[in-house]
């Protein structure tokens, strides 16, 4: 993840962001990375946490209805 160009955080789903966060924490905890790389990882970890928290704040249940073969947006009639 650190080797390739890291993906922009803004577009990450919660699952993807959290999974990356977990690898970052694991990498940092192992303490094998050099200082500078660790600093970068730490900063990205912080950004991922912020992103995840924002996703949770904004999260709204997405509801679709299966009518026929294609799911459509669900609308409550009340």
């Amino acid at each position: 993840m650190a080797k390739n160009e890291p993906k922009p955080i803004k577009g990450l789903t919660y699952e993807a962001a959290f999974a990356e966060l977990e690898t970052i924490v694991a990498a940092l905890e192992s303490g094998e990375k050099p200082l500078e790389a660790s600093m970068l990882l730490f900063e990205r970890g912080q950004a991922l946490i912020k992103h995840c928290a924002e996703l949770l704040d904004k999260a709204e249940l997405k509801v679709q209805t299966l009518t026929g073969d294609v799911p459509v947006e669900f609308k409550e009639n009340e």
Binding site: L56, A59, L61, K62, V63, Q64, T65, L66, T67, F74
Partner: peptide, 18 residues
């Protein structure tokens, strides 16, 4: 059910088969 899901896990995606 929808209210409960929204409250507990709004990240989820719900598909209703009526």
């Amino acid at each position: 059910m929808l209210q409960t899901l929204q409250r507990r896990m709004p990240l989820a995606e719900v598909v209703l088969a009526p």
